[in-house]
């Protein structure tokens, strides 16, 4: 279980800032970041009307499926996907092999602008995720995490979840 993702407040803030920045600079409707396994990490913009949990899972499925196609063709992975709709467009990019950045935009923006801004944001996000990884490795080698929700978890706590 080497690839669990543990996210602390500090890194989360940085990610959040990056997404806010991207959201504004790309004139996007919504921006969000999804783990490759389909879990939503963070979002920015008009997310209220969107079922982000489902969107995250389907986006990851989409990336996984095109990744499978890529391997069949002898490509490593398709790192950018773009879907064009009547009103909204969606730009999906794979960042550092690990997370998926999704930008939804309409005619207030353009593919060119989104591409450019995504590229910039990707570089920062890769750096942040590298920090997260090295921090997690350090924590693991030093033993349990501070303030771990699992530290004193009891059978009863787990049973209570299913009441």
């Amino acid at each position: 279980m080497s690839s669990d993702l543990v996210m602390y407040e500090e890194e989360f803030q940085k990610i959040d800032e990056e997404l806010q920045k991207l959201f504004q600079q790309a004139s996007a409707k919504v921006v969000f970041l999804v783990d490759k396994n389909g879990q939503l990490i963070a979002s920015a913009g008009e997310t209220r009307e969107i079922d982000t949990t489902s969107l995250a899972s389907l986006t990851a499925g989409n990336i996984a499926a095109t990744g499978g196609i890529a391997r069949l063709l002898g490509e490593k992975e398709f790192t950018i996907l773009f879907h064009e709709g009547e009103k909204d467009n969606i730009h999906i990019s794979l960042i550092g092999q690990r997370v998926i950045l999704v930008v939804i935009f309409d005619k207030r923006s353009s593919l060119g602008l989104v591409r450019l801004r995504v590229k910039k944001a990707s570089e920062s996000l890769v750096r942040i995720f590298n920090e997260i990884t090295s921090k997690a490795e350090k924590d693991k080698s030093e033993g349990k995490l501070d303030d771990s929700p699992f530290a004193e978890i009891s059978d009863e706590d787990i049973d209570n979840l299913f009441k």
Binding site: L5, V6, M7, E9, I41, P149
Partner: peptide, 15 residues
């Protein structure tokens, strides 16, 4: 792969 988020205080697991 679980996702433990200390910021939003969430634990996500996949079955």
């Amino acid at each position: 792969m679980s996702f433990i988020n200390y910021s939003s205080r969430e634990i996500n697991c996949k079955i």
